[in-house]
C-alpha cells in the first residue's frame, strides 16, 4: 500500500463524503432560496425538450444500475437466481443503452448551454464546473464499460470496486481491493468523488428535492398566515441575483 493509494482510496472518499453531507446541510440552512433547478426552459425549449428527458431518464437508469452493481453483494443476486453471466449481460446491455442515452442528452444540454444566448448568459461558474466533472465522470464510466465490458474480456468490478466501496461505508476501508483496477475505472471513480464533493454547491441539489410527496398530498394546500410568516431575516442566495452585467450585455 503506497501512501498515494491510501490517499486516493481512503482519504479522498471520506473527504468527498463529508463534503457531500455537510455541504448539503449547510446549503439547506444557508440558502433555501437558491435550492432550485434554475430551469432555463422559458428561454428555449426545442433542444431542452429532447435533451433534458433523455439525460434524466438515462442518468436515473444509470443510478439504479450503480445501486445494484455496487451496493448489492453478488451473493444476494445469486441467491435469487441471477448468475454471473446473466448479470454481466444485463448490466452491459442496459448499461450501454443508458450510457448512450445519458451522453446524448448531456451533449444536447451542453451544446444548448453554449449556443443559446440567454441560456449561456444565465450559466454560472458553478454550472460550468459541474458540467466538467459530470461529463468526465460519465465519459470515463462509459469508456471503461466499452473498453473492458463490451469489447474487452470483462472486468469483475463486483469483486473489487464494489466491496471496496462497501468497505468505505462500513468504516473498515480496504484500499488494497483497488490495487489492480484498470485506470479507466480509477479515473471514473475519482472524477465521481470530485463531483460528489462539488454536488452541494451546484444546482444538482435539486435531486434531493425530487417531489415524490406530490403523489400523496391533497391537491390544494392551505396554510395559516401565522405558521408561514415567511419573513425570516433574508439570507444571501448562493447565486447572487443581480442585474446583468452591462459589459456582458455589450458582448458582440
Amino acid at each position: 500500500m503506497s501512501p498515494i493509494e491510501i490517499v486516493l482510496w481512503v482519504a479522498v472518499p471520506y473527504v468527498s463524503i463529508i463534503a457531500f453531507v455537510a455541504g448539503h446541510i449547510w446549503r439547506y440552512r444557508y440558502d433555501k432560496f437558491g435550492w432550485t433547478t434554475r430551469s432555463s426552459q422559458t428561454y428555449e425549449n426545442a433542444l431542452l425538450r429532447w435533451g433534458s428527458p433523455m439525460f434524466h431518464l438515462g442518468i436515473l437508469m444509470v443510478l439504479a444500475g450503480h445501486v445494484v452493481g455496487l451496493f448489492i453483494p453478488r451473493e444476494w443476486l445469486y441467491a435469487i437466481g441471477i448468475t454471473e453471466e446473466m448479470y454481466h449481460w444485463g448490466a452491459t446491455v442496459m448499461g450501454s443503452f443508458a450510457a448512450v442515452l445519458t451522453l446524448a442528452g448531456l451533449a444536447i444540454l451542453i451544446y444548448r448551454r453554449r449556443t443559446v444566448g440567454p441560456v449561456f448568459l444565465a450559466t454560472t461558474v458553478m454550472d460550468k464546473v459541474m458540467y466538467v466533472f459530470l461529463a468526465l465522470t460519465l465519459g470515463f464510466g462509459t469508456l471503461a464499460t466499452f473498453v473492458h465490458q463490451v469489447f474487452g474480456s470483462g472486468f469483475h468490478y463486483r469483486e473489487t470496486i464494489s466491496p471496496w466501496l462497501r468497505s468505505i461505508f462500513g468504516f473498515q476501508p480496504q484500499p488494497e481491493l483497488m490495487a489492480n483496477v484498470p485506470i479507466l475505472f480509477d479515473l471514473h471513480v475519482l472524477s465521481a468523488l470530485a463531483l460528489f464533493a462539488l454536488w452541494p454547491f451546484t444546482r444538482l441539489v435539486h435531486v434531493f428535492s425530487a417531489p415524490v410527496g406530490y403523489l400523496f398530498r391533497p391537491y390544494v394546500v392551505y396554510r395559516s398566515r401565522d405558521d408561514v410568516q415567511g419573513t425570516r431575516a433574508p439570507k444571501r442566495g448562493w447565486d447572487p441575483i443581480s442585474t446583468p452585467d452591462p459589459q456582458r450585455l455589450r458582448r458582440p
Binding site: 426552459q41 417531489p211 394546500v221 392551505y222
Partner: peptide, 24 residues
C-alpha cells in the same frame, strides 16, 4: 413541491419562495 398555498385566513394564494424548487 407543495410550495404554493392558499392562506387559510384570507384565501390569498402565495408561493413560498424558500420551498419552490423551480419545477414550473
Amino acid at each position: 413541491s407543495g410550495a404554493m398555498y392558499k392562506r387559510a385566513e384570507d384565501g390569498i394564494v402565495l408561493v413560498d419562495q424558500d420551498q419552490c424548487r423551480g419545477w414550473r
